[in-house]
Each structure stands twice: as structure tokens, then as C-alpha cells.
Design a protein around this nucleic acid. Structure first.
Length: 675
DNA sequence: ACACGGCGC
DNA sequence: TATCCGCGCCGTGTA
């Protein structure tokens, strides 16, 4: 079920949306947060969405009109108070102190926590009890505000007190905002967004969760600040209205935590939550706040140079084709190549024939324009995505780019990075390298990179306990060469580069659930050769084959698969009657435990490293994580110690049946690093 | 808003 | 018989 389906349904009927939100989890009567619903409508909807098999699980009708009695959706209700004088503020501080645990939330002027201004703070020490402290509202308002300094001075000791447990929804955001006010939140012990993520909720927004899990329909923020061009900042919203809104946020966060905590425990996810995900949040916050420095001059110079090269390529392309057109439009390009020039076609898309790189690559020799187009594509991608877009993301205050690491985005447990995505900076090719050279270390420092060698395959070796794979890693063999030797049946010394390349493709292919068709596409092999290779592979690695089977079996039986730390991914379509959907589900089931175990490992490493760096009072800073790699900014004097520490703690993060090997490099920028 | 294409691991 | 190998984010064109 995709989110957009839910949203479309939600527009028509909130009640149906609620039911569908619960899908495809087994429905219990309690899950229907509606006063009534029309069973015919639901039936129709489920058939349309191919959920007919779940119809018997719908709560039974209790009346002849087909109306089931259940919970009712309500607006947020509670005792919400505004704190705008010293006496009330002092009282609030005492109340929160006594509670030992409280939820909090911030209202700000924007979405970017690095630049947003604080508008107000809300607190909830108990369900149905919340307080709003306005600090940054502007304009005339019948309700007053205390001075920012007084509020910070009194709230700071609470938020910085390690003995008081804080709850928040997307707490990294609030912590980052408050950090700009020199307030370092300690002991964020429960983030309801992360809890929802681990529990496999479809939508992680507070409003959606409150609706689906608490039967509370919260006010959308657009009701306060508007939307589109007519938006106003929260600072211009009346205090009384902001207070209700913000109080509900803190209140619902607390209530969600109360139901999520037992669920996490019951599902065996508590340790992952409390000892990995929650401790990771402040580490990510500091990485984001650290940011990374850019060589703006180099970017400018590259932009100019690439612009000139692109103009030349454009001319070459137009000359070859005979007229001008928009090369960036796949549709127009398809027309030119396949209609006008009559080149052989491959895959079809909606707008015409596919013009992807792998297809153009096949046509390289057929027409001289193809080479120019491929070059154009490559340069244009690098220029627009990685060069021209970057300067606008430099924070004027820090002069650095501060990516955002999202902890609740991926299906496997990996992090993702956005605004900008620093996890997909080019690395291959001349130009790719040059882009990386624009990511530089501060004066007197180096960038240091520590990356896991073959972590996914090591995770596979551990999970599958395949004897040959374990052996290969225990003897620190070149795994792709070892695979090639095994599968081609030659001596390790006799493996050709070609053989190794094929073996490498297959090693990765296994992790992705590759078919003979997939292998054929990815290599030059014929279908038969590909199938034979895969067969030979599984004969040499029977443990891997067995593991893949048992993983799929687990998904079929339990409905989910897991990583080494118990992280779960639901695989709802594993038993689907549509073969394509079912096989796609199988590939997800195979891939998630491997990719997710790697993610578990590096997360633990990050937490341990952050702790040890603080303990040793190192000046080095963790800047980036790129799935199997950590990048630090390291004063020259700490380079040796930091390299050793990173390698040690990354290797020791989680003990597997095979060693975890870590390679360390350093240099003045991300593009020029040496061991 | 969506599809395509393309960058990373 | 035909067949998209997993996970992301983002710029561009098209609607």
C-alpha cells in the first residue's frame, strides 16, 4: 500500500483512510477508529486495491445496516495552559522537574532547524496536561511573553538535566533549534517518530499517527500558517491559537510514547530503540551541525568549464542530428534517436523509447551522436546536481553545508541524507573526483575516511553461515577473486580480470536477489551462461542458497524479516498471487537483512566513536556517513590517533562470525585521500 | 505531481 | 513467456 493511495482515500473518506492505514496488518475491531463505516464501500475499496483476501478479517458488522460500533475520532482534548509570566514559568519548571519525564516540542519560523528561529516551546508532563511558552511571537497580542533570556535561563537546566527524561517527536529537529540558542538537550529518551518507524508505521507524521493510533484528529498546521504563497511564519500566529496547536503536539507525543513503548518491548525492538536509535540521534545532530566545508572557488571554476564543454557538445549533437532540440528531454531525445534517425529500439517507456545510459551504451558504435549524448548527460548531471545546486545550500552563518540525516526514511534501517544528499556525491570518473575535491577540510585539518570493506558480503557470510564464504573472509581473501576461482573452477592465481568482474556482479547480485535475466543484463553473458553461473554459484555456496530459502520462508510464515539486531521489515506481498509482485517481495526479503545488518553495525560504531571521542576530548569531528563509510574532520595532530580509533571501534562494533575489516584514508579533501 | 534518468552504497 | 537485482535523493521535463 502506497501512501498516496491513502491520501487519495483520505480526501474522500477519513473513516476508510483509517481502516486502510492499518492495512495490511491484521485488522482487529479496535483498529477501526471510526464510529461507523459502510462495509460495501470498504469491500469495494479492498477489491480495487487487491486486498480482497483480507476482507474476512474486517470487523464483523453488528447491525443490519452494516454499521459497526467502535471508537470515535475526536479533536485533541486536554488542559492546555499558556505560560506568559514569571510565576507560571516557575510553577511549570517545578512541575516538569517533579514529573521526571516530559514531552516537549518547539514552534519555529521555518523548516530548516539550522536557520529557524524559536517561536515557542510546549511541554507535557502527563497525558492531557500541556503548557505553551511563547517566546518569539511578533505583533500586538493580548497575551504577553516573557523575555527570551528569562525563559532560556529557566528552561535550560531542565532540558540539560540528564536525570529528566525527554520525549519528543522528531527530537533531532528540536534539539538542533535549541542548540542554536546554546541549549544542549540531554537524555532525549523517547522519540515517537523513531518508535513509529521501528514499528513499521506507514506514515511517521505526528498528525497521522495521532489519527491512526489515538483516534485524535489534530489541526493541520496549514490552518494556522496557511499554505502556498500565502503562508505566514508561526511567529505571526496569535499566541492563543499557537498554544492550542503546540500543546496538542506535546500532549500527543507523550500519549503516543505511552502506547509505543510496550509495543516496542513486546516486539523485541526495545533494545534496538533504546540502545541504538535513540543514542544515535544526538550523534546525527552534531554531524549535521558540524557541516562540511566547500571550496566555492573550485565549484565556480568547474561550473564555468563544464558550461563551455556542454555548449560544445550541444553543437556537436545538433550538427549530427541536423537541428536543435532539448537534449534534456527524454521524450524529444527518443523521437530524434528512434524516429528520425531510426536507431534500433529497446525498452519502451510512457513517452517513447527508453534513452537510459545502458541502452545508449549499446548504440555507441551505431551512430556518432550517441557518444556526444552520453558525454552531455554525464557532464550536465554533474553540473546541475552537484555543482550549481551546492552553493545555495551553504549556510551563510557557518560557511558550510549542513546535510540532514534522516533516521526514519528507509525500509532497511539505513540512514538517508538530503538537502543536500551527501551520500551520492560522485566518486567515479575524472569529473566525479573533481567534485569530491571541492569538499575540503578546515585549515590545519584533514578529512579522514574510514570505510568497511565488503560489509554487506560479510553480513551475508554471518547471516548465512556459509562455510566457503566464512572461510574466505577469515583468510582475508579477495572475495570476488575467490568467488571467481570457486565458480569457474580455476586456481586463485588463474582468475582473469573478466572472471573477477563477473564474480563481483554475482556477489552483489545475490544480495539483491538477482535472476538469470538480471545477470544477463548486468554482464555480457547470455541467458544460459548466466543461469549456469548462478547454478554453479549456489553449488559452491550451498549455505547462501539455504539462507535465501529460509529467509523467504520466514517472510512467508511471519510476514517480516529481520536484521542482526532484530530490526524488522514487513513483507506484505510475499504471498501475493501476482508473480511479479511476489518476486519483488522476495527480493526485498532477501536484501533487507543484509543491508539492514550493515546499517545496524555502522550505527553502533558511530555511537561508540562519538562517545570515545568525547571521552578523549578529541577535537576531531564526525561529519558524514555514507552507508559503509564514516568521514571525519581531523586536526593534523590527531590524524594518527583518530585513524586508529575509527578502525578499532568500527571493527568491534558488533561481533560477527567473520572479521570486520576497515580501511582508513586521509587527505586535504574528499577527492584526494591516501592510506 | 509524476516519470525519467542518474549519482551513491 | 517475458522478465526492473536491493536501498535512497534530486534535477529536469511534462502535465
Amino acid at each position: 500500500m502506497r501512501l498516496k493511495d491513502n491520501e487519495a482515500i483520505a480526501r474522500q473518506s477519513k473513516e476508510l483512510a483509517t481502516i486502510v492505514t492499518q492495512m495490511p496488518v491484521e485488522l482487529k475491531p479496535d483498529d477501526c477508529r471510526v464510529s461507523q463505516y459502510d462495509r460495501n464501500k470498504v469491500t469495494e475499496l479492498f477489491r480495487e486495491l487487491e486486498f480482497a483476501s483480507l476482507l474476512p478479517k474486517l470487523p464483523q458488522m453488528e447491525t443490519e445496516t452494516g454499521v459497526a460500533a467502535s471508537l470515535e475520532v475526536k479533536p485533541p482534548e486536554g488542559d492546555y495552559k499558556i505560560v506568559s509570566n514569571t510565576k507560571d514559568l516557575d510553577r511549570l519548571v517545578k512541575r516538569l522537574s517533579a514529573a521526571k519525564t516530559f514531552a516537549f516540542d518547539t514552534e519555529t519560523t521555518g523548516l530548516n532547524p539550522m536557520t529557524a528561529g524559536l517561536v515557542g516551546l510546549s511541554f507535557s508532563p502527563a497525558a492531557g496536561e500541556a503548557y505553551y511558552v511563547p517566546v518569539g511571537h511578533v505583533g500586538l497580542d493580548p497575551i504577553g511573553q516573557l523575555p527570551l533570556e528569562e525563559i532560556i535561563a529557566k528552561i535550560k537546566p531542565l532540558l540539560e538535566d540528564k536525570k529528566l527524561a525527554k520525549l519528543a517527536h522528531n527530537g533531532k529537529y528540536d534539539m538542533t533549534v535549541l542548540a542554536q540558542y546554546d541549549l544542549a538537550v540531554q537524555n532525549l529518551s523517547f522519540d515517537s517518530m523513531i518508535a513509529a518507524y521501528l514499528l513499521g508505521e506507514k506514515s511517521m507524521g505526528l498528525k497521522n499517527l495521532a489519527f491512526a493510533r489515538l483516534a485524535v484528529e489534530m489541526t493541520p498546521i496549514s490552518e494556522l500558517i496557511g499554505k502556498g504563497a500565502k503562508q505566514i511564519p508561526m511567529s505571526q500566529v496569535e499566541i492563543s491559537r499557537a498554544a492550542d496547536y503546540a500543546s496538542a503536539d506535546a500532549d500527543m507525543t507523550l500519549r503516543l510514547a505511552e502506547i509505543f513503548e510496550p509495543e516496542l518491548k513486546q516486539q523485541g525492538l526495545w533494545q534496538l530503540f533504546a540502545e541504538v536509535e535513540m543514542p544515535l540521534t544526538p550523534v546525527l545532530m552534531s554531524m549535521e551541525r558540524n557541516g562540511v566545508a566547500l571550496d566555492s572557488d573550485l565549484l565556480k571554476q568547474m561550473s564555468k568549464r563544464l558550461g563551455e564543454q556542454l555548449l560544445k557538445l550541444e553543437k556537436d549533437i545538433y550538427d549530427n542530428v541536423g537541428h536543435q532540440f532539448n537534449i534534456n528531454s527524454p521524450q524529444q531525445l527518443s523521437n530524434v534517436l528512434f524516429e528520425e534517425l531510426g536507431l534500433p529500439t529497446a525498452r519502451k517507456t510512457k513517452g517513447g523509447y527508453s534513452t537510459g545510459a545502458s541502452i545508449l551504451e549499446e548504440l555507441r558504435g551505431v551512430h556518432p551522436v550517441i557518444g556526444f549524448i552520453l558525454d552531455y548527460r554525464q557532464l550536465s548531471k554533474i553540473k546541475s546536481t552537484y555543482i550549481d545546486a551546492m552553493p545555495s545550500l551553504i549556510n551563510p552563518r557557518t560557511g558550510r553545508v549542513h546535510t540532514s540525516f534522516n533516521q526514519t526514511r528507509t525500509a532497511t534501517g539505513r540512514l538517508s541524507s538530503s538537502e543536500p544528499n551527501l551520500q551520492n556525491i560522485p566518486v567515479r570518473g575524472e569529473m566525479g573526483k573533481e567534485v569530491r575535491q571541492a569538499f575540503i577540510a578546515a585549515e590545519g585539518s584533514y578529512l579522514l575516511s574510514a570505510d568497511y570493506s565488503q560489509i554487506d558480503l560479510r553480513a551475508l557470510a554471518h547471516l548465512s553461515q556459509d562455510k566457503s564464504l566464512l572461510d574466505a573472509f577469515r583468510h582475508d581473501e579477495d572475495i570476488h577473486s575467490a568467488t571467481a576461482a570457486q565458480v569457474f573452477g580455476v586456481d586463485p592465481g588463474k582468475v582473469t580480470p573478466e572472471m573477477r568482474r563477473t564474480a563481483k556482479t554475482v556477489n552483489f547480485g545475490v544480495i539483491y536477489g538477482m535472476s538469470d535475466y538480471g545477470l544477463e543484463q548486468a554482464t555480457g553473458l547470455s541467458r544460459e551462461e548466466a543461469a549456469a553461473f548462478i547454478n554453479a554459484y549456489f553449488e559452491k555456496y550451498p549455505g547462501v542458497k539455504q539462507y535465501l530459502e529460509s529467509t523467504k520462508e520466514k517472510a512467508r510464515k511471519e510476514g517480516y524479516v529481520q536484521t542482526i539486531l532484530g530490526r524488522k521489515r514487513a513483507i506484505p506481498e510475499i504471498n501475493h498471487s501476482n508473480r511479479q509482485l511476489r518476486e519483488a517481495a522476495e527480493r526485498m526479503a532477501i536484501n533487507m537483512p543484509v543491508q539492514g545488518t550493515s546499517a545496524d553495525i555502522i550505527k553502533v560504531a558511530m555511537i561508540n566513536l562519538d562517545g570515545e571521542m568525547a571521552k578523549r576530548q578529541l577535537k576531531s569531528k564526525m561529519l558524514l556517513q555514507v552507508h559503509d563509510e564514516l568521514i571525519f574532520e581531523v586536526p593534523r595532530a590527531e590524524q594518527k590517533e583518530m585513524g586508529k580509533l575509527a578502525a578499532e571501534l568500527m571493527s568491534a562494533a558488533i561481533e560477527l562470525s567473520v572479521p570486520l575489516k576497515v580501511d582508513v584514508k586521509a587527505g586535504p579533501n574528499w577527492g584526494e585521500m591516501e592510506p
